[in-house]
């Protein structure tokens, strides 16, 4: 303080004051974010505690918290995996189309169009799923049941309404497609021209060039993009809540009338009518969902951060 006052007055004092306030505000904003995140984990834990410590009979379903949550976790993972299986090849193909097949001039616009898929609110995907996808899925489900009925996924009596795990998987796939495509698109664009040209100069066709130069370069990004998509699918709520006709328990049949609900959808469906311990139970379920998505997202980031090590950029 004495040093400041020893300096000549004027020019320096006011800006310094401003500098400090501004730097403080910027740092403070960052700290708030950290507090919020700590708060998310902390408050959820706090509100979930009663359910963790309650005796099993009191928890909704009457068999305890674990029995309540694990079929939901199963449904969450099953729908998300279906979505991922559908969306991963599609997103790679679409990204390749935009980066390496479409005419340059319209490639950017095509990218925007795919991005628009992400802008549609999930409630609208839900309504669309019920009105358009579900009815359209019935003949497909019947076919699957007739011809692939020996698999556990395709039971003998497909749902007549089409509000099945399979349809939810398809709708989720559409919803996560834009994120995954965006990640793939970006990394495919970054493929060094040097390697693409090396391949072409060896007499590779376009597809051989992609296999030699583009895909190896983008592999880890494709994986991390898929994980980001998985994270989205795991947490998606309204589309699932609206489309799926659910039943308690674990159901492997993805085209039947009884489908395992997902954590997020169950919370949305039950929460408005719940009170007391039921609320705590749902929050505990939410906590489980939070940790599952956290793990998946962190894994995705880890893959991304590892990428730089073997990308071979020299």
């Amino acid at each position: 303080m004495s040093t400041t006052s020893a300096k000549p007055r004027g020019v320096h004092d006011a800006p310094r004051y401003g500098d400090r306030i501004f730097a403080g505000a910027a740092t403070g904003a960052g700290v708030i974010i950290l507090l919020v995140l700590a708060g998310v984990a902390g408050f959820l834990l706090w509100q979930a505690l009663p359910a963790l410590t309650a005796s099993p009979e009191d928890v909704r379903g009457g068999k305890g918290l674990f029995e309540y949550i694990y079929p939901l976790a199963f449904g969450t993972i099953l729908t998300s995996v279906i979505a991922l299986v559908i969306a991963t090849p599609l997103s790679v193909g679409i990204a390749l189309f935009i980066t390496h097949y479409a005419p340059r001039r319209i490639a950017l616009a095509l990218g925007y169009v795919v991005d628009l898929l992400a802008a549609v609110p999930s409630i609208i995907y839900g309504l669309w799923g019920v009105y358009v996808v579900a009815p359209a899925s019935v003949p497909v489900a019947t076919w699957l049941s007739n011809w692939l009925g020996f698999l556990p996924f395709f039971g003998p009596s497909p749902s007549a309404s089409g509000r099945t795990t399979l349809v939810v998987g398809v709708v989720l796939a559409i919803m996560i497609l834009p994120v995954m495509t965006a990640v793939n698109r970006e990394v495919f664009l970054q493929t060094p021209r040097l390697h693409e040209e090396a391949s072409l100069a060896l007499g590779a066709t376009r597809w051989e060039m992609i296999r030699q130069a583009v895909l190896p370069f983008g592999r880890s990004a494709v994986i991390s993009g898929a994980m980001l998509g998985l994270g989205r699918a795991l947490g998606e709520t309204m589309a699932v809540a609206i489309i799926l006709s659910t039943a308690v328990g674990v159901h492997w049949d993805i085209i039947g009338t009884a489908n395992s609900s997902t954590i997020a959808a169950d919370i949305a469906l039950q929460f408005p009518e719940s009170s007391g311990l039921d609320v705590n139970t749902l929050i505990a379920a939410g906590l489980v969902l939070f940790f599952i998505t956290l793990l998946v997202n962190m894994a995705a980031r880890w893959v991304v951060s590892r990428r730089s090590e073997f990308s071979g950029a020299n």
Partner: peptide, 21 residues
């Protein structure tokens, strides 16, 4: 052009071996 490039090979200014191979 693919056939042409098999007949007429090319070496670039910067060495560009495929990094993952």
């Amino acid at each position: 052009p693919v056939g042409v490039r098999r007949r007429v090979g090319m070496v670039f200014q910067r060495p560009n071996p495929f990094p993952t191979m």
